[in-house]
């Protein structure tokens, strides 16, 4: 019995001593993370790095890449030292390292003055006139869209990390045009969906707007930019997953706009796409060309990357 217990302690001790961390190894393989092909972020990223063929096709990418959603990529980059991925600037945190692109820091100022290359618009789209579950929902959606152009919405968009379009109107000055917002709407549900890169921004907006507009219920179900049109004006608009307001983190395509009125869509903000790596990775700056080489598989090791400044 004693011998046996002795053996245990030995094995346990051996197991426990085995846990320590290594330093960054330049000769390690690059783990490439990407969004799936419905994603607006992927569309914006691939177009931005000059690899637009890969926006809709996975087989052009380096073999062994991983498809993850927005925050899963963010999460992966906190644990995978050798990973590289891209996310929306609005999701960037200190837990990962956001890289300069061609020497330019991804910041709001650099997006608005057009020096940062990887940017894309945040768009909204609403259902066609009189195609809502109820009139109250339609009126609320119209009020919401008007709210998007106010400074109040701009504050919230900026606070959530996206870059609001300049505006000087306040909600207080136009709210009387939308009498529905003065009523008690706590039983009304408005459904929001589309791009999941916009989810955090959209949630911040609806939280604020619900407080201003009779506490209506905002139901968020964000599944990708492709569904921004599909679930408001496309095939699945009348299914259970139909939405009243859809968001897209890329411009709507001409095919999507074919059956949509000009008043049904608009831009609410700009967003920058940031290349991210693990905090232990020594790299600071990257170029669009290097990114293309990484995603196409020309560079497979971190040591393959040429020096940049």
């Amino acid at each position: 019995m004693k011998k046996i217990i002795g053996c245990f302690t030995l094995i346990l001790a051996l197991l426990l001593t085995g846990c320590s961390r290594g330093l960054f190894n330049e000769d390690a393989k690059i783990t490439v993370y990407t969004r799936d092909t419905t994603s607006g972020t992927r569309d914006g990223f691939m177009n931005g790095i000059g690899f637009s063929e890969a926006a809709k096709q996975d087989d052009l990418l380096v073999s062994g890449f991983l498809i993850k959603d927005n925050t899963a990529i963010l999460n992966a980059m906190t644990i995978d030292e050798y990973g590289i991925g891209y996310i929306s600037l609005s999701s960037l945190t200190d837990n990962v390292k956001g890289l300069k692109l061609n020497g330019v820091i991804p910041s709001e100022a650099n997006v608005l003055n057009d020096t940062y290359d990887l940017k894309r618009p945040f768009m909204w789209m609403i259902r066609a006139e009189a195609d809502y579950p109820s009139e109250a929902v339609e009126l609320l959606v119209q009020a919401f869209v008007a709210f998007l152009n106010t400074t109040d919405a701009g504050d919230i968009i900026n606070n959530a990390g996206a870059i609001a379009l300049p505006s000087s109107t306040t909600w207080d000055s136009i709210k009387n045009d939308y009498p529905i917002t003065a009523e008690d709407n706590h039983l009304i549900t408005v459904r929001f969906g589309g791009s999941d890169s916009i989810q955090k921004v959209a949630q911040a907006l609806t939280q604020a707007f619900s407080a201003k507009a009779g506490n209506f219920i905002a139901e968020h179900d964000h599944t990708g930019s492709g569904d921004g049109w599909k679930r408001t004006n496309g095939d699945s608009k009348d299914q259970a997953e139909g939405k009243d307001v859809g968001f897209s983190s890329r411009n709507f395509t001409s095919a999507e706009l074919a059956n949509v009125n000009a008043t049904q869509t608009g831009q609410l903000a700009w967003d920058a796409i940031v290349t991210i790596v693990h905090n232990d990775n020594p790299i600071e700056n990257i170029t669009t060309q290097i990114l293309k080489n990484i995603y196409s598989g020309a560079y497979t090791l971190w040591s393959d990357l040429p020096e940049t400044d």
Partner: peptide, 18 residues
């Protein structure tokens, strides 16, 4: 996941976050 990730680092393999 954390244990597997650290173990894989010890043996020099990159696992995808465990």
């Amino acid at each position: 996941l954390k244990i597997v990730y650290q173990m894989s680092q010890l043996v020099g393999v990159q696992s995808k976050g465990g």
